[in-house]
């Protein structure tokens, strides 16, 4: 029983892994071409940007908030940095462009964080608002031009792979940005489990007032969360452009649903205080595999969004029903315990 509990994981990661495994086995039986290193690597490749976004969303959700402006922050910061490099400083090295994008992302995140923490406003509404503001400001002041070519330093990153080998059906390669995503996952995992900042996020997500009384600096932590989201979003934005070899200001915004669905499926509680990096990684991969499988199975792509939407509702629904069950369990009489108490009193 104890082993089962451990295998299941505190956020049902075990269940998720089982679903993922079942899906992969089923797909391999239906279409033998599915099970190959090529598919695995291409899934990793398509999961790279969603994974970085998902880490950002995980951090906010654990702290008890939600951020729907991350895609806008990503495109704003990456597009601004890239278009600055193209129009005024074509020789800028890649790290400078990425650094510039991260700085912009941090400032936009800071804006979100200050508005939310200082005025204690609902996070969904604030980020819904800033999403519009960020996109609007970008179109107005930065531009809406589509750049088919990245600055040379970034463009050269596009073809960097870490592992590259030939398989029976073609080439399989691991993009450098996928390695970045894996590295970020490890960093966020370490932060959530091994630092006081991470524990503060869980504490605030569990009960913000209790966290305040315990001496956590709630406002500062909340602001930092949104700055962190901005930074991660900026990295995701740059990764998206590098992997797509172009800068399109119309990208990313509108795909937030997939990311939030992945994080919630990964066991993060929409009510705050729960969630893990492992679950999030599994959630992201699950959504990618489902998308790929449905495409392979010949399902029209229009249905993909519907499928993801249903998964999100199922994920939240399971959480809510489990919470309700738990609440009910506490109320019913535990006869054995009651007997024991009575005996204690008698003796």
């Amino acid at each position: 029983m104890q082993m089962l509990r451990t295998l299941r994981g505190s956020n049902n990661e075990g269940v998720l892994a089982l679903v993922l495994l079942t899906l992969i086995i089923a797909m391999s039986i239906i279409s033998p071409a599915f099970l190959s290193a090529g598919t695995a690597f291409s899934t990793l490749r398509s999961a790279t940007v969603p994974l970085i976004f998902a880490l950002a969303v995980l951090v906010v959700i654990v702290s008890g908030g939600i951020d729907v402006s991350f895609a806008a922050v990503a495109i704003f910061s990456a597009y601004t940095a890239v278009s600055f490099a193209i129009t005024t400083a074509p020789d800028l090295p890649a790290f400078a462009i990425i650094g510039f994008a991260i700085a912009i992302g941090a400032v936009l995140g800071l804006f979100n964080g200050v508005v939310i923490a200082r005025f204690r406003l609902p996070t969904l509404i604030v980020t819904l608002g800033t999403q519009g503001v960020f996109v609007g400001v970008m179109y107005t002041y930065v531009g809406a031009t589509y750049y088919a070519q990245l600055p040379p330093s970034l463009a050269s990153l596009s073809s960097v792979t870490v592992i590259d080998f030939a398989t029976g059906t073609g080439r399989a390669s691991l993009h450098v940005m996928a390695v970045v995503a894996i590295g970020l996952s490890l960093i966020i995992w370490w932060m959530l489990t091994r630092t006081m900042f991470g524990r503060a996020l869980y504490a605030i997500g569990g009960d913000a007032e209790a966290a305040r009384r315990a001496g956590f600096r709630v406002m500062r932590t909340q602001v930092l969360v949104y700055v962190l989201v901005g930074v991660l979003a900026a990295i995701a934005g740059v990764a998206h452009m590098v992997m797509g070899r172009s800068a399109n200001p119309q990208d990313l915004v509108g795909d937030e649903l997939d990311i939030i669905a992945a994080v919630v499926l990964g066991g993060a509680s929409i009510f705050g205080g729960r969630g893990s990096v492992l679950g999030t990684v599994l959630g992201v991969i699950l959504i990618q595999v489902i998308n790929n499988s449905l495409l392979l199975a010949g399902v029209p792509s229009a249905w993909l969004r519907a499928a993801v939407g249903m998964l999100l509702i199922a994920g939240v629904g399971i959480q809510a029903i489990a919470a309700r069950k738990k609440a009910r369990r506490v109320h019913t009489v535990d006869e054995q315990k009651a007997d024991r108490v009575v005996e204690e009193v008698a003796s």
Partner: peptide, 20 residues
């Protein structure tokens, strides 16, 4: 209301504020 964290374990709740 005890100001405890419902999502953390008993052990974490006991120790966490001291760490803060």
């Amino acid at each position: 209301d005890f100001s405890l964290f419902p999502n953390l374990t008993v052990a974490e709740n006991i120790v966490l504020t001291a760490e803060v």
